[in-house]
Every structure is written in structure tokens, then in C-alpha cells.
Design a binder for these strands. Structure first.
Lengths: 253, 253
DNA sequence: CGCCAACTTGATGGCTGTCAAGTCAGGTGG
DNA sequence: CCACCTGACTTGACAGCCATCAAGTTGGCG
């Protein structure tokens, strides 16, 4: 395998004079979203020194699986993931979609084994952060400790949001919430809030939202008829963000 | 307000010669379930010194509310709580039920404001743990740090479980899962696995499980007809634990 | 060009929500 | 002590939403 370089997937190699930039937090454009948020240059260097491994994950491959020993927290450098859990009878549920700058693997801390599968939905790159060394470092760097705790807490709050979505929202509310959430996260990464490509199938969206794929498809079609969005396969244009927000605000009963 | 003492609610004062035992982790019978797990005597004393306040919460009162500044993590010393979130239109959802030895308030770390309400479902007693001092101490005591991280991670895993429950289980599976979970948690606290009183209404159970109260009631009645449980208002006797487990194991489709 | 996975759309049925009426248990005041 | 009241719970009838089943369409890729 060739050594990974930041520009490996760019078509315009000439625009990147430093083709073999060492991937590091300090020169990562996600540092304001990811773990290093708020660290001084010196502290960031110390965090960098933990991260010995950065790995490519091909679309469809697993980053980790249920039951595997837990050792690393993973930071997504580029790409897109889903996590899912399987019931013994074969049914499975997507528990989240993760994008660049977000952390994977927090579920494994509790039992020191992973409790879900993490699958790349497109070719991706992740930083391996040895968890026990991260704990050591966060005993020394208060800012790092605080930020890590906030990330874990944010995950809990996010899960509560999904629980309310699954517990009391109707189809249209779930889909609107899903689209607005994606839009917001793309925006935070410097992409368009109104136009993006879905990385997941209708079935995966449905699994995440507690719906069947046909129901997801129908909701997209209905939103399109109403002029809220334009859908073409996985390409989404949001035409009326306030309209989507209103769907969630109005009580249907 | 009189200083709380461990025996204050006992009817048999004569059996407790030390009527004003200082409530402390080191003499708390929940220390193996709660935050101090694995600490040495010395370390436990240091944790004790953080916990200046222990407070009674009356049934129906809030421990904290959405939007309040976050300052403490709370350990339940006795009693029973629910957490819930409100949507702007008035709908609300129970996100969890907490019992003795469990922590409350982890949701607040992320934004330093609470994101849910915590309500006592019976007269309860909680230890107030100043979070920022807990962070300091966990920078010094590795065992405490590790255990706190495990508790947060466990909360994430628990939430994933609720998401699968809400996303793909039918009514009977949800109710069976709910009863088995309660049974297991009562057992861990030295109570009967098969017989207990529910602290919450049918409506609160339904809200937690994404169902209406009538649906919960009907499911209880059906389980009773099938000889799986005996229900009388809030008193539950589980007659056939394997039977309940089977409901979750068999794929209905 | 043809295949296949992903997606769309329609028809139908079942589960669970909704509405309504009635029961039960606990607490209060006469 | 009993009547009454209230909140919680149970049960039935019905309806609506979403799952299911089925058939067709689209787009990517070998």
C-alpha cells in the first residue's frame, strides 16, 4: 500500500507542493471540530505524538466489529461512517452516521470491547488514538480532559435526540430532522448547507430513523412534490430550510 | 433543615446507635455500584471530601431542569428518578429511569447547561458531586478517571439499546425488555428479581418505550393472560423470566 | 448491452394510536 | 364511617399510519 498523503485523492496534484505532508493534528483542517479543540501548539504536539497510526478504510470495510477488544478511539480525518448493532435474530439497526472530525469507538470504553460495528460508507481515513495513552495525557492537560468529557457528553445528548425522534415523531418529522441535521453538519465543515450527496442507502436511513426504506422513499417524494427539496437518487438539494423546520415545530396533535 | 442522617427515615431508631453517621462513600452500601468502585480507602476519602452536599428530593420535585447551569453530577443514594426532554410543542419523552447508585447530570457536561429535566418519582436522596472538582481529582486518581469514563460510555451503550428498542421492536418485545431490565437492576441492588413495585405510571413507561399508555396497559394484561407476569396496579411479579427472554429472542418476521 | 443493486410507486393489511366508557384505589371532608 | 372525588388504570371499538408485498424504473458498471 502506498504511504497515505493528504492529497492522494485530489485530481489536481500540482496545487499541493508538499505532497507528503505528515498528517498531524497541528496541520489538520479539522482541529477545530475534533479532539484538539482549544489546545496550545505545545499541547497539540503532545497529542500528535500519541497518534502513531493513520489508516485508510475502503468503502464497505469495517473499522471495528462487535466484540473486538477495545484499544483505540478513532478520529475521522476524511470520509463517512455508520455504526450499527445486530440483534441475535439478524435484525440490525444503524445507531449513527459519523463524518470528518467526529470520534468513533466511545462505546468500547465501558466493557473494553466494542458494542457496535463501524462501517465506512465511502473511502475514508481515520486517526488511531490509543485510548489508555489518551487518558494519561488528559490527566496532564486539563483542556484536553475537559474537551474529551464534552465530546462524550455530546454523544449522550445526541442519543437522547434520536430517542425523541424515534419515540414521538412521525415520518415527515423524522426525515426533516435528519436532513436538517446533515445540512448543519456539512455547513460546519465548510460545505453547502443546501446541497449534498447522501452517503447512505434509503435502507440505512430507514434503519437509523426506525422506518422501512419504502417509507423513506415516499417521504422524499412527498417533500419534493411540496417544493421543500429536490431529490435525484442520492443527490439532495434543500429548497426550503424554514419549511423543513416548520414541519418539526408544528404539533400534529 | 436538619442534617440528613442515614437512618433518618427508619422507624427503628434504637437499632442504629450512630444516629448521625456522616453519609460518606466509604460507608455507603452502594459504593460497589457507584462512582467509588475500585478506589482504595485513601482515595475514597479524597472523593468523600468533594461531596459537601447531600439533599432530599421529594416525590415529584425536580433535581434539575432544562437550561439550568451545569455544576454538579448527582449520585442517587436512595430513591428513583426519571429524566425527560420537552419538545417546543409540548410533547415530552422520558429518556431514562435512574435508581440508587446511578449518576444523573452527565448530559450537562457538553454545553454546561442541563439538556433534560430530572424528576424524583419517589422521595429520594442524592449526593452532589461538583463536576469540576471531580475532574481535578480524576486527573490525580487514575482509577477514578477510568471508572468515570466507563460510566459515561455505559450511558452511551445504554442509549444505543433504547434506540434499537424504539427502532425495531414491537410492543411485546419493548415491554419484555423493560421488565427484564428493571428486574436485573433490582437484583444488582439486592432486591428480588421477580417481584417489585413500579415507581412510574403507565404513561411514563409508554413515553420511555415510544408507546401510548393504553398500549402498555394492554401488553401487561396480555402477559398476565399468558402467565408470564402477575400485575396488580404497580405491583409486578414476574412468573416466567425465560418466557420473557424468549419473546425478545424469537424473530417475529 | 445487459445485469444488478438501489430506488420508486401502488395496493393492501395489521398494528398501534385515538376516543370513549368504565373500574379501581387512595385520600379528603362531612 | 361513609360518600365523594380524583388520578391512574383497564377495556373496547374504530381509524389511520406505516409495513408489507409486488411490480416497475433508474443508473452504474463490467
Amino acid at each position: 500500500m502506498p504511504p497515505p498523503s493528504k492529497a492522494a485523492k485530489d485530481t489536481s496534484f500540482k496545487e499541493t507542493p508538499f505532497a507528503v505532508i505528515k498528517a498531524a493534528c497541528s496541520n489538520c483542517n479539522l482541529r477545530e471540530l475534533c479532539l484538539p479543540l482549544g489546545l496550545s501548539d505545545d499541547e497539540m504536539t503532545r497529542l500528535d505524538s500519541l497518534i502513531s497510526v493513520r489508516k485508510r478504510i475502503k468503502r464497505g470495510d469495517c473499522l471495528y466489529r462487535v466484540g473486538e477488544p477495545f484499544e483505540y478511539i478513532y478520529a475521522i480525518r476524511s470520509g463517512f461512517f455508520k455504526t450499527d448493532v445486530l440483534l441475535e435474530d439478524g435484525r440490525d439497526q444503524v445507531t449513527g452516521f459519523q463524518m470528518a472530525g467526529e470520534l468513533l469507538g466511545l462505546d468500547g470504553i465501558s466493557t473494553e470491547r466494542h458494542t457496535c460495528n463501524s462501517v465506512a460508507l465511502e473511502d475514508s481515513e481515520v486517526c488511531h488514538i490509543p485510548f489508555f495513552r489518551l487518558e494519561s495525557l488528559s490527566r496532564e492537560i486539563q483542556t484536553l480532559q475537559r474537551h474529551f468529557h464534552k465530546i462524550m457528553s455530546r454523544e449522550i445528548v445526541r442519543d437522547h435526540g434520536v430517542m425523541t425522534l424515534l419515540g414521538m415523531m412521525c415520518v415527515e418529522e423524522r426525515i426533516a430532522a435528519f436532513l436538517l441535521n446533515l445540512s448543519q453538519r456539512f455547513t460546519a465543515r465548510g460545505f453547502s448547507p443546501a446541497e449534498f450527496n447522501l452517503r447512505m442507502t434509503r435502507e440505512e436511513i430507514g434503519s437509523y430513523l426506525g422506518l422501512k426504506l419504502e417509507t423513506v422513499s415516499r417521504a422524499f417524494s412527498r417533500f419534493q412534490e411540496e417544493g421543500l427539496i429536490a431529490v435525484q437518487q442520492r443527490h439532495i438539494r434543500i429548497l426550503d430550510i424554514p419549511g423543513l423546520q416548520q414541519i418539526m415545530a408544528k404539533r400534529n396533535h
